[in-house]
């Protein structure tokens, strides 16, 4: 019953979004917005074509590499900054500042440093994704309830046992939230990188379609990316919620 309910409303919105899309099409015509059905058919056709696959693989590879750097590097840096109080305090405002600047302005710098092609895309995607991962991991480590550690000492756990049985479960939910946001931002960064000065990938196809004013292709690619993003995010969110179910209740430890 409950699961049915939780599916019904989003489904309703999805249907109304498609309906809205249709209405936009009726209002604006094929020049601006192509109808849902032909666009999806076009998307299906595109995916079937052999020349589409290399682009998809290029974007996919760039994204996966960027994601690996963002997650691995982010967690590592976050653990160090969370564990060493002064470093954390020194770094936090810089990270928050970096988080809220338009990073696209730095893309030319990255292009100059890495050259055109895959490495620049990966670097730009990772640059977007790594900051939230660092911030969340740092806070997760900082906010570990000291009482858990004292309880661990009282039970005479070895450092390794303390790490595995206390620190990992205590920080995991928060770190995972950071990874989820890092995932979205890495995707955004990778796509942005492909939109500017790129010769391959979905972003390149998108830019080509814009130059040709091929609305159907623009929409088809936009829908493809969005659907991937939404489904992946929903899955990550579901895991996130499961992890947080076993986490300390919100506001615990505060008066």
């Amino acid at each position: 019953m409950v699961s049915l309910r939780s599916w019904r409303d989003p489904l309703l919105v999805a249907i109304s979004l498609v309906a809205l899309w249709q209405v936009l099409h009726e209002l604006a015509g094929d020049v601006a917005v192509t109808a849902p059905a032909p666009t999806l058919a076009h998307l299906w056709e595109m995916i079937g074509q052999a020349r589409f696959l290399p682009h998809l693989r290029e974007t996919g590879l760039a994204f996966l590499q960027a994601l690996a750097i963002a997650c691995g590097g982010g967690v590592l840096i976050g653990l160090v900054l969370g564990g060493h109080k002064l470093s954390g305090e020194v770094a936090e405002p810089i990270l928050v500042g970096l988080y809220s600047i338009p990073k696209i302005t730095l893309y030319p710098v990255i292009l100059l440093l890495f050259g055109l092609g895959m490495p620049a895309k990966v670097a730009f995607g990772a640059l977007h994704g790594i900051i939230p991962v660092v911030l969340f991991t740092m806070n997760a480590v900082r906010n570990v309830n000291r009482t858990y550690l004292r309880a661990g000492r009282a039970m005479r756990l070895t450092p390794l046992q303390t790490g595995w049985h206390i620190l990992v479960p205590a920080t995991l939910p928060e770190i995972f939230s950071g990874l989820r946001i890092g995932f979205s931002l890495t995707l955004l960064g990778t796509m942005l990188g492909e939109l500017f000065a790129s010769q391959r990938g979905l972003g390149f196809l998108l830019m080509t379609a814009i130059d040709l004013h091929d609305v159907k292709t623009i929409l088809a690619i936009a829908v493809l990316i969005s659907t991937f993003a939404i489904i992946a995010n929903a899955a990550l969110l579901a895991i996130d919620k499961r992890l947080h179910r076993g986490a300390a209740p919100e506001g615990a430890g505060k008066p």
């Binding site: 409303d9 917005v33 979205s184 998108l206 609305v215």
Partner: peptide
């Protein structure tokens, strides 16, 4: 709220710039 919650949660996962050409057309 129930209806929009999943979309709000996924919103920043969507690369918005994919829709930018569309906005130019409109």
């Amino acid at each position: 709220r129930r209806a929009f919650n999943p979309f709000l949660a996924a919103y920043y996962a969507i690369p918005h710039f994919a829709f930018y050409p569309l906005l130019i057309v409109i």
